[in-house]
Amino acid sequence: MARPALEVADIFRDHGPAWRKTHAGHVSLDQLKVMSAIESCRTATLGGHVARCEDCAYTSIAYNSCRNRHCPKCQGAAAKQWLADREAELLPVPYYHVVFTLPARIADIAYRNRAIIYDLLFKVSAETLLTIAADPKHLGARIGITSVLHTWGSAMTHHPHVHMIVPGGGISPDGQRWVSCRPGFFLPVRVLSRLFRRLFLERLVALHQAGRLSFFGDDAHLAGAQSFAAFLAPLRKTEWVVYSKRPFGGPESLTHKSPNLSCSRESAGQEPDV
């Protein structure tokens, strides 16, 4: 395969030093290590090996890979295989694209508590969709979900949200038949939004009470129970964004947008581990 004209590594090498200087103090050590690995991948920095033809003496040098899970060069083959595996699972039914988004105030907390909040986002969004889909008032079926986490928006700002590919129906409670949703309509987004909000805030408060959240700088006061409750109060009254629409061009078009395999999870219609 021909090398693309421009790679992420080229951008990091050309602009990384200036960017790191500008954002000093706001970039974690892990993020700096990822940038360094991508910059060094398949260069002399990581060493390599020499292959030489015994007949014609033709010599080529192959530099070592960084093997970082975030590196697009190292993970390219795995990404293609992941997409192929997901496409093989697609059913001959309509699919819907569902997105659960965290409010900006919660995103601020998530930035300093990424592993905990992202995990909570995965679990609560899955539980919300499974619960409403199982309700006989809506679909009354056990559905399947493929979920992918995006942590940044198109404006390159921190914007945690989960994209889901969901078939337009599911298995009946007795496991004997397929239950289809109404044509062009999957589940009511307002109902999804309100359950998502309630469950997420309940679990977030539990994490706070267990002392599992960290706060720094201007947010240090949120470590106190009363301050945190006051911080969450407005969020209990606002509408949380849940988006549901059939993906353009079929479900395959959505799987090809799936990012970074390291932050992908799937739920095969089973109850989430919450």
Rank of each mutant, 00 (worst) to 15 (best):
T131Q: 13
Y96E: 06
Q209T: 07
Y95P: 00
Y96R: 09
A134H: 14
D174S: 08
R197C: 05
F248P: 02
H161G: 00
H208E: 10
G217V: 09
W152Y: 04
S172H: 11
L83W: 14
L139N: 05
R67Q: 13
Y95S: 01
G168I: 08
C66N: 07
T255K: 12
P4T: 10
P167S: 12
P167V: 12
L6S: 02
A24L: 10
V241D: 03
R42W: 10
A133Y: 09
F122L: 02
P251T: 06
R52F: 03
H15V: 08
V274K: 13
D85F: 14
R112H: 13
D219E: 12
I106M: 00
V166A: 05
V242R: 02
G168C: 03
H23T: 05
Y95L: 03
D219G: 05
F215G: 02
Q176G: 04
K73H: 15
R13G: 02
V93H: 12
Q31H: 06
I38W: 04
L102C: 02
P92V: 09
F196K: 02
I165K: 11
G48H: 13
A78D: 12
L121E: 08
C56R: 15
Q75H: 07
S264D: 01
I171P: 00
L102N: 06
G76A: 15
M156K: 09
A225L: 10
G16F: 04
L235M: 09
P272E: 13
K73V: 15
R13V: 08
F122S: 00
S253G: 03
H70F: 04
A155N: 06
A2Y: 13
K21M: 04
G211V: 11
I171N: 03
R105M: 10
A57D: 15
L204W: 08
I109P: 00
A9E: 09
R52N: 05
S172P: 07
R3T: 14
E54I: 11
Y118Q: 09
M35H: 08
L192P: 00
R265P: 01
L201D: 01
V274Q: 10
K137V: 07
T128Y: 09
L6N: 03
P160E: 00
R198T: 12
H221M: 01
Y63H: 15
A88R: 14
F231A: 01
E202I: 11
P183C: 03
R265W: 13
T157W: 04
W19T: 05
T157S: 05
